[in-house]
Design a protein around this nucleic acid. Structure first.
Lengths: 154, 154
DNA sequence: TTCATAATGTACCATATGCTACATTAGGTT
DNA sequence: AACCTAATGTAGCATATGGTACATTATGAA
């Protein structure tokens, strides 16, 4: 009976359980990556603002304790995104800088797009934090296109 | 170190930190809720399609093993969203049904909105899975408004 | 009724995220 | 130099999510 009764357009589009399963699986598997992206973006921001990123500043900005920051930074260092030494500041490696830049670009696009819909700055920023990690290149392109109907090609 | 006195560049960033910190904190704290939402939606779908939701079907649809489903269902039962008995099917409670309905509505709105931007059905479905949990009421309303430029006030 | 198999449950492991409490280090002050 | 304090590090706990391996139950077939 699992013969996928046409639940609106969902079943036909996703190919039933298989399709949706893949979507959800990917969504969940990427939580760690999302964290790394948030950290990379925050580190880049701090470096831009004050020249270096300290654990305590990251904790403040990310809304977690310094302990959580410490562990995440350790993981990111193992993954090659940051470099740091005990009791020293945290710096981005090349891959880390690329990650941060990519994230900031996406973040800004999402915020600008939401703002263009008339959404308040507060809500746009808040929603963008959650949404920016889930926009595919195709959707991001559509957002950009909607922002530049005139034709600036950037 | 850093007696926190020279708040030259910090002052301007301080207010920003607070706001962003709150955004990120909320985003992360809600991962468990997102899971419950996905499960509620999947259970509702299975009940609609086959009359009952079994662990094995949920596992297939959500792309995880039956063990993961089992544990999550236990948590959701404790939270009052579902009711079930050993070796029996899973049913939604009233709060569970409300949650599922709310999620499906949001999901459909997000998909429709993305589709209206010209995004493919596959990408729209995939992105919606990740985005639907992060759209505020304000943004959701904006999506709906963009879908109904004629003026039907919902 | 017996039995084979699928479904479900349980035990145990791993990672990621978050915390509190406490230990250690760095840097400026005295 | 000694000292104080903020910053950093570490130990241990908790929850959520994911898994494999194995035990148990349900259920239809023989």
């Amino acid at each position: 009976m699992a013969t996928a009764k046409p639940t609106s357009s969902k079943a036909s589009a996703a190919g039933g359980d298989q399709g949706q399963a893949a979507n959800l699986r990917l969504t969940r598997r990427d939580h760690a990556r999302e964290t790394s992206e948030d950290y990379a973006e925050a580190i880049a921001g701090l470096i831009a603002e004050k020249g270096e990123a300290r654990v305590v500043d990251l904790a403040k900005r990310l809304g977690v304790t310094h302990v959580t920051v410490n562990r995440t930074i350790a993981r990111m260092q193992k993954a090659g995104y940051v470099s740091t030494q005990p009791y020293r500041a945290i710096f981005l490696t090349e891959p880390g800088r690329a990650l941060a830049q990519d994230c900031k670009s996406r973040h800004d696009t999402v915020v600008a797009f939401l703002r263009s819909l008339g959404i308040s700055e507060q809500a746009a920023e808040k929603d963008a934090e959650g949404i920016e990690h889930h926009v595919s290149p195709e959707t991001l392109a559509a957002f950009k296109a909607a922002l530049k109907p005139a034709g600036r090609s950037v």
